[in-house]
Simulated assay, not measured.
Amino acid sequence: MLDNKDQQLLVALQSQARMSVSELANTINLSDTPTLRRIKKLEQEHVITGYHAAINPKSLNLNVLVYAFVRLSQNSVSAAQQFEQHVEKLAHVLECSVISGSHDYLLKIISQDLESYEQFVKHQLGSLSCIANIESTVVLKQSFSKKQLPL
């Protein structure tokens, strides 16, 4: 269970992961050594799973965000494994979630434009024989995207 200092540390790291240990220690009102110990403990317990740079997709000419609903042709472990292993290798697939309802998966996909997304679906995603159906929803405008978890 996380105590108050751990939660304060996580809030600080979520807003600025490049903060020095001294800055973090000052923020949570501890000295450097106990703060570093807490960080290492949170990493070992897989509460903190990594540190990432937030990159503006448009600066890399990635202008289209699509959510694709995928239905597999059969509801089997082998089809699910085949699908998951395949999409994990696709760089344009940012997220893959197993969902309930009339579809099996929800994919978050980024692409340069609609034409390149169409090529991606036809040649990379749609080439899998275990896929029965793909329904795409194009994001017209992303109002916001939160990276920080509520603590």
Rank of each mutant, 00 (worst) to 15 (best):
145 S>T: 08
106 L>E: 02
52 H>M: 13
133 N>V: 03
98 V>L: 04
128 L>R: 03
92 H>D: 12
146 K>M: 12
47 V>C: 10
5 K>G: 06
149 L>E: 07
15 S>H: 10
14 Q>M: 02
21 V>S: 13
130 C>W: 12
54 A>L: 13
151 L>K: 02
88 E>M: 11
66 V>T: 00
71 R>K: 14
69 F>P: 04
17 A>M: 08
112 Q>Y: 09
43 E>I: 15
54 A>Y: 15
78 S>G: 03
143 S>V: 12
110 I>K: 00
59 S>F: 04
41 K>N: 08
134 I>K: 00
58 K>V: 07
82 Q>R: 09
113 D>M: 11
7 Q>G: 07
16 Q>C: 05
116 S>R: 15
4 N>V: 07
125 L>P: 02
12 A>S: 04
95 E>S: 00
146 K>L: 14
33 T>A: 12
150 P>K: 08
87 V>W: 04
99 I>F: 09
55 I>R: 14
26 N>C: 08
74 Q>S: 14
82 Q>E: 13
102 S>K: 04
134 I>E: 00
86 H>L: 07
134 I>F: 05
125 L>I: 03
80 A>N: 15
67 Y>C: 02
97 S>K: 15
44 Q>Y: 09
53 A>I: 04
133 N>Q: 10
67 Y>V: 09
3 D>A: 05
78 S>I: 12
22 S>H: 15
121 V>I: 09
118 E>P: 05
75 N>K: 12
121 V>P: 05
122 K>G: 03
50 G>V: 14
39 I>F: 10
31 S>T: 15
58 K>W: 07
87 V>F: 02
39 I>T: 08
2 L>H: 02
142 Q>R: 13
29 N>R: 14
20 S>L: 01
27 T>Q: 06
10 L>C: 00
122 K>Q: 15
103 H>S: 10
19 M>T: 03
72 L>N: 07
70 V>A: 04
148 Q>D: 10
15 S>I: 13
103 H>I: 01
110 I>P: 02
114 L>P: 08
1 M>G: 06
47 V>H: 15
78 S>L: 13
8 Q>Y: 14
2 L>K: 05
127 S>Y: 14
97 S>D: 03
131 I>E: 00
136 S>G: 05
80 A>I: 08
88 E>G: 10
3 D>W: 10
76 S>V: 10
95 E>F: 03
132 A>C: 08
8 Q>N: 10
118 E>M: 05
55 I>A: 11
149 L>Y: 15
